[in-house]
């Protein structure tokens, strides 16, 4: 009975892949434009754009280039990174509950940013926090690779990721604990909640090349992820090098997620929920899901970031808080469904 219900649900939605990619792409483009228009300063977007093109230094042009454009671009980039990484990691681990946090890189990036904050690097340089985050992510990745190169299997790799993540979490808590000033603690805690506010084009330029490396590696792994649907042995018999795939996805995730956390702080649930919601629409194929989920991540992140600015709360809600509040009920419904299917 239950399997009958599940079968109908699974069969119900199977949208042609190009259509799905086109629709999600168009939706993220629209939200990107909306993100440029929505803000605290009332502003005529058409006039601002024509000012930019004409090279006039109007207030509108300044707000557009210095504030809104970086914010919208980062929403797109961070969202894509979270969604695509989540899908690839779920495919690699063949587990719908995996999220970008499992490899520990996001925790390490947060720790790096916190250390940058306390060391004063952040006060000294506008992108100091981001640089600290990248350093943390880089160290964690090196550690993971060292383990992976010794031939550790997927389980060992993930356990190391979890260990790195919890160590980074403990050290972050230690830094907060030893903080000399409560204001500093508050500032760090707020940063850790994740936000795209007050970022500059420097942040975009810092993250873009690193994320691009991650995206290229992730999107190129689709065929192998499909092959992995029938287990590692079958994937290898189909000609895929599973160990290289593992390395590739860990490195790609580290690039994409490390730089996302470094510029935007920790934005949870996007990487977990988006692949899960979109999976039935690609017929549960892990390969095509990577691009679709990346676009879906961009849609969700941009939408949440617009919501944050539209809601009349003060201070502005943090993006990570909003995604978690939207995401947690999804997770509950997912667990509810899984529980029912296991009965």
């Amino acid at each position: 009975m239950t399997s009958r219900v599940a079968a109908t649900r699974l069969r119900a939605a199977d949208i042609p892949y190009p259509l799905l990619v086109g629709a999600l792409g168009a939706l993220s483009a629209i939200l990107f434009l909306v993100s440029l228009v929505v803000g605290y300063v009332p502003l005529d977007p058409v006039a601002a754009v024509s000012d930019i093109i004409a090279g006039r230094d109007s207030v509108g042009a300044l707000v557009m280039v210095e504030l809104r454009l970086p914010r919208a671009l980062l929403g797109l980039m961070v969202g894509f990174s979270l969604g695509a990484t989540g899908a690839a990691l779920q495919g690699l681990l063949r587990n719908p509950l995996a999220d970008p946090g499992v490899i520990g890189v996001s925790g390490a990036a947060a720790l790096g940013a916190v250390i940058a904050f306390y060391s004063g690097l952040a006060g000294f340089l506008s992108i100091g926090l981001a640089l600290g985050g990248l350093a943390g992510a880089g160290l964690a990745t090196a550690l993971l690779l060292l383990l992976a190169r010794q031939g550790a299997g997927t389980t060992a790799l993930i356990l190391s990721g979890v260990a790195i993540g919890s160590l980074a979490g403990a050290l972050t808590a230690l830094a907060l604990n030893l903080s000399p000033s409560p204001y500093a603690v508050m500032e760090v805690v707020f940063w850790l909640m994740g936000s795209l506010a007050d970022r500059s084009l420097d942040h975009v330029l810092l993250a873009a090349p690193l994320m691009a490396v991650g995206w290229i590696l992730l999107l190129g792994a689709g065929r192998a992820l499909d092959g992995l649907s029938l287990g590692e042995e079958t994937a290898r018999s189909l000609g895929f090098d599973v160990m290289r795939l593992r390395l590739r996805i860990v490195v790609a995730s580290a690039f994409a997620i490390g730089s996302a956390v470094a510029v935007a702080g920790a934005i949870g649930f996007v990487g977990l929920v988006v692949p899960h919601v979109l999976r039935p629409l690609v017929g549960h194929q892990p390969g095509p899901l990577v691009l679709v989920s990346g676009l879906g991540g961009a849609v969700l992140t941009l939408a949440a970031d617009i919501l944050v600015r539209v809601l009349p709360t003060h201070p502005e809600l943090k993006l990570g808080v909003v995604t978690a509040i939207i995401g947690a009920p999804f997770l509950f419904s997912l667990l509810w469904r899984m529980r029912r299917e296991m009965d």
Binding site: A6, L10, R11, D14, R94, G222, R223, D226, G227, L228, S229, L230, G231, E233, T234, S237, L238, G239, F240, R279, G283, H284, Q285, P286, G287, P288
Partner: peptide
């Protein structure tokens, strides 16, 4: 190679499972 433990990790359609056998012949998805 047909493995003994036929595990299938995602609820793929039958046709898509069979299509996985063509992966070695194809350059891209």
């Amino acid at each position: 190679y047909l493995a003994q433990s036929g595990r299938l990790h995602w609820p793929l359609k039958v046709e898509r499972v069979v299509a996985l056998g063509r992966l070695p012949h194809r350059e891209r998805p």
